[in-house]
Amino acid sequence: MIDSLFEVRASYVSVSAMSREPRLEVECRAQSKETEGTTQVLDEAGSVTTADPTTETHSEEDLDLPWQVVVHNDPVNLMSYVTMVFQRVFGYPREKAERHMLEVHHKGRSVLWAGMREPAELYVQQLHGYLLLATLEKLS
C-alpha cells in the first residue's frame, strides 16, 4: 500500500537563482505631446492625430499604474495547484497559467498582472487565500 504512494510523482515549484526583468502586461499607452494649444497623439500604429488639450488629462489611474502582482517560488506548492490558482484568480487559459507557473518554477518569480493598486491588492489577497507567496510591488 505504501509502495503505491511512492509511485506518485508530485511536481514542485523549485527555486532557481536566475533573475529576470519584470514584464508588464499593461497595454502600451499612446505617447502625447502638446504643441501650440493642441495635443498630437502618436498611437500604437504610429500615426499622429490631434486631440483637444482640454480633454487630455492624466487620470488617477494613470498616476497609480505602476503596481505589479508578483508570485514567488515556493518548493512546497504543487505545480498543478499553482496552475489552477492562476486560472481561477486571473481567468487565464490553462496554457498561459502554465507559462507563468513555469516561470515561477525556473526563474523564482513571475509577474502575473500589473495595473492600479486596488485591483492588484485584491489579486494578492486572493493569491494569499490560496496560500501562494505573492507580493505587490511598485515599479520604480
Binding site: L5, V8, A10, L78, S80, Y81, M84
Partner: peptide, 11 residues
C-alpha cells in the same frame, strides 16, 4: 508527500 498525492487527485 501523502497529502500532495491527495491534492493531485482532487485537482
Amino acid at each position: 508527500n501523502f497529502y500532495g498525492f491527495l491534492q493531485e487527485f482532487i485537482l
